[in-house]
Nucleic acid binder design. Sequence first.
DNA 1: CCTCAGGTCTTTTAGACAGCATGTC
DNA 2: CTAAAAGACCTGAGG
Length: 659
Amino acid sequence: MEVRELPLEDRFVEHFEEKGIESLYPPQVAAVEAGVADDQRVVAALPTASGKTLVAQLAMLTADGPALYVVPLRALATEKYETFSELPGVSVGVATGDYDGDDDGFEDDDIVVATCEKVDSAIRNGAEWVERLACVVVDEVHLLDARGRGPTLEVTLAKLQRLRPDQQIVALSATVGNADEIADWLDAELVQSTWRPVDLKTGVYDDGAIAFEDGENRRIDADDRPPTTALVADALDEGGQSLVFVNSRREAQQLAAELADEGFAAAPEIAEEIGPDATTSTGEALASAAKGGVAFHHAGLRAEHRSIVENAFRERELRVLCATPTLAAGVNVPARRVIVRDTERFTGEGYDPLPVLEVHQMFGRAGRPGLDPYGEAVLVATGENADSLRERYVGAEPEPVESKLAAREPLRTHVLATVAGGFADSREGLRDVLASTFFAHQRDESELRDLTDEVLAYLDATGMLRRDGGLAATDLGRLVSRVYVDPLTGAEVVEAVETAAAMERVTALTILELVCDTEDMTTQHVRNDEAGRLSEFAMRREDQFTKSVSEFEGNFQSWLGTLKTARLLADWADGADAETIDERYGVAPGDVRRLAESAAWLLSATEVIAEHLADGAVGRDADAESDAAADGGETADADYESVVDRIRETREALVERED
DNA sequence: CCTCAGGTCTTTTAGACAGCATGTC
DNA sequence: CTAAAAGACCTGAGG
């Protein structure tokens, strides 16, 4: 099937032809036959790089109104925004947390690219553009399975369909065990294929040879070198780049250093590009590896370094990339040979084997369409596990996608948002909304009832929702839902701000500790040699914290992590540079940035909540004073205003540091 | 006294979404 | 509060 045969306007046909897209790939033909270009709902479960983006564009460009493209990562949003912006005469907008501002600009856009959470937030805040969508494309729907974020995706999709039941939905998925179930839920036709534009050969390296799935056996002389080194060297001999997946940052850096020492290739210009900013230990290690044509990639890298590495690898200036799983799901960085060295990951409860889906996504990075003759994905066996690796990951079907909605955390968030957003005003109404989720389709809505009731009781007890006959969110509940924090965070903030308002000394550290100790914040680990110093510091500054240090309730060790994070952020807000933070706390620049971003977000939510409390306190003070006048007793001396001021100052200092 | 091999104890372990509020002549 | 592997620390033998 040719592009010109599609029901597209001429300018789009020309655009695609200019890009070299003239005829469709087989899975794309299947999607067209299923009706993507004809307003039909379609679920396309296809391998990476098999042309899903074109399928999405066909749906969006033929839809009868504005379209939304939902992605799981901000980096992906930027990538898609750039792609769609090239379409002639199409106005595209991006809605993600880091593109602030023009929230109402989307009214005029033909395509909006957004993260799932941003869409959820827009719905909660009553944005009008979400109600007009004729077409919604969901990228990476298999993330319905993700514990942290899947529930948001399914609830958001359920809400979007309620807002416009007739809208076209197109869901793009990796190959999963139960794509049919997802299609069924969305009332869509399933298009499934394993076709790829580049051949993929998958194999297991063991005992000096790669045993490929197709029977080929490729000898690789290790010559005393570790298997991974030999595999990389072999790929380089054939003129191909390698992408090696390992399971920790330390491994990634160490392996990069070892491979750089082998002297395979050199990329002095990349080292130089990294060089000037390589003040931290991470940056230095990266620059030094780059001299040998090798790099590593993990979330501790500064954003600038990360994109230098990605681009240099794409341009073939770097020949080897050692990465943590960041790269498997993120932006497209393909390589001739993908080497999966580690297939186990620490989970907090020992080591777990990686899910098949994840390993397949790593495999999927093998082979550059149009550039490599084929892609190779190689698992590295250790000891006697070659057969079990092969059985588990090669040619095995990925796990089915399972809804994670039936848990306390996602339910308390989404139950509150559903009520606060006006989607339900009774338990029956709430059930009705929940009945349209993927969970209900897969299991049964009734399985959510006990947890939902428990969550409703919690929301009532924390003053976010009332259950008198029907269900109604309180002012606090609406606020918490709109600022997009977990109700537990909301409750923690309310309590801490109330404590702070009665405190003598409220500093930036007070405020930072307050937000770092909420459910929505991730904190740093405390190294053994830091613990003593930190708890000493905590004792010294006890009067600055909203909780008692000397009579600590709960896990003191983990609170020290909270404190470490708060101190680090206080230093950062105070102007300390990445190098200083790295030396003082052993925290990499990418992590500092991420923590600062989260804290800034939570501080803004905290500010709004504190203002709300301040308003309430005015009323309460008046009451208290009249009571006091009646008793002739004390007056309330809680000072919310100065807490609000301190929160604002702290947030501003932190935001200013975001260069 | 220094070095190095080998054993034992200790430490560490991936990633990344989200925002209110408005003024101004 | 799980388990694997690197790293820190320790010990003892040999130069």
